[in-house]
Amino acid sequence: MPTYIYWGDDDYLIERNVNKLRKQVVHPDWETFNFSSYSPSADSFNAAINEILTPPMGTGSRLVLLPNFNLLATMNDSMLSQLERTLVNLPSTNHLLLTLQSKPDNRLKSTKLLMKHSQVKEFQLIPAWDTQKLIDRVRDATSFLSIPISAPAANLLALAVGNNTRLLFNELEKLSLVAIGEKIEVHHVQDLVSITTTSTLQLASAICASDAIATTRIFTTLLDQNEPVVKIVATLTT
């Protein structure tokens, strides 16, 4: 199916996967003609629908991107009919990609229609306290980049970057330049990645223990480490 829905709040991971699909289907020499991105509006939707049915020029396929698509809940019957005709008649050489910041509402007619014809991928930020999922994300990232890493090194890197996906990929690309084809080991991570042992979970423990001195010290350390306040609050309220 040449229709895709990427949804979630991990903007960086969505961006990487959009670029991956773009490189897979659009020939670089014909990208100017065969790749388009439209803002989320009714007029842009109509223009995108018209373009996605146009055969690609030259070599490769056509990709039309509708980023941060927020019209699913406001589609009228005319737009739904237009979308259905497009999805049914979409050529195999043409690819339609929608990105959403939240999970599509399965109660909507528009969502049901898209789900019937689309490949759906979820890209959610992992809670900072979910260590195993953070380690799994490191594994997924190394597989995505074809970079080998040992289990202890993956664990340490997960501790260092938390759920910051952009930082994870930046650190992996930096580590790959040093390892030069070898498996990334613990000493590589220790030498190149800034590792902090103070975490929001420690702050939560201090708060639960009513330890005002430890709470103040840990909170100050987190701020000194440039830990976003929003992330601290989100972890504490999870």
Rank of each mutant, 00 (worst) to 15 (best):
M1L: 12
S37M: 06
G8Q: 10
I5A: 11
A214Y: 00
L156F: 04
S44W: 11
P28L: 04
L72F: 14
N50D: 15
L172G: 04
D136F: 07
M1D: 11
N155C: 06
N34M: 10
L114I: 09
D9Y: 07
L90W: 10
P127S: 04
T198E: 14
T221L: 01
A42E: 15
P28A: 04
V120C: 08
V178Y: 12
T86Q: 10
T74C: 08
K20T: 02
R139N: 14
L71V: 10
D43P: 04
D11A: 13
F35C: 12
I49Y: 14
T216N: 02
L203W: 01
D191M: 08
D11Y: 03
E227F: 06
N76I: 06
Q124D: 03
P40D: 05
L159R: 08
D77P: 04
V233T: 14
R22K: 12
Q24I: 01
P40L: 09
T111W: 10
A160Q: 05
R137F: 05
H188G: 04
Q24A: 13
N76R: 11
A206N: 00
L222Y: 03
A151S: 15
T215N: 00
E171S: 06
Q101D: 10
P228I: 01
H187R: 13
T111L: 07
T32W: 10
N50I: 13
L192Y: 15
S39V: 11
F144S: 05
A204K: 01
V18D: 05
A42G: 13
N170G: 00
R166L: 12
L134P: 03
K20E: 00
V88M: 07
Q119Y: 11
L172M: 07
V178G: 01
T99I: 07
T215G: 02
T197L: 02
K231R: 14
N106P: 03
G181H: 08
T3Q: 11
Q190M: 10
A212Q: 00
D224C: 06
L87E: 07
L203R: 00
S199F: 02
L13V: 04
N68M: 05
V161D: 03
L125K: 13
A209M: 00
A158D: 07
H188S: 06
K112I: 05
L156Y: 02
K231G: 03
A73V: 06
V230H: 03
L172E: 05
S78E: 15
T200V: 15
T54S: 15
S41P: 06
V64K: 12
K231I: 03
P104R: 10
N76G: 13
P104N: 08
A42I: 15
R22H: 09
Y4R: 07
F219S: 03
A204P: 00
T237N: 06
L98D: 04
L114S: 06
A209V: 00
T200W: 01
V178L: 12
V88L: 13
D11I: 04
T86A: 14
T216W: 00
D43S: 15
I126F: 04
P2K: 08
N94F: 10
M1T: 13
L90H: 07
T32L: 14
V230M: 03
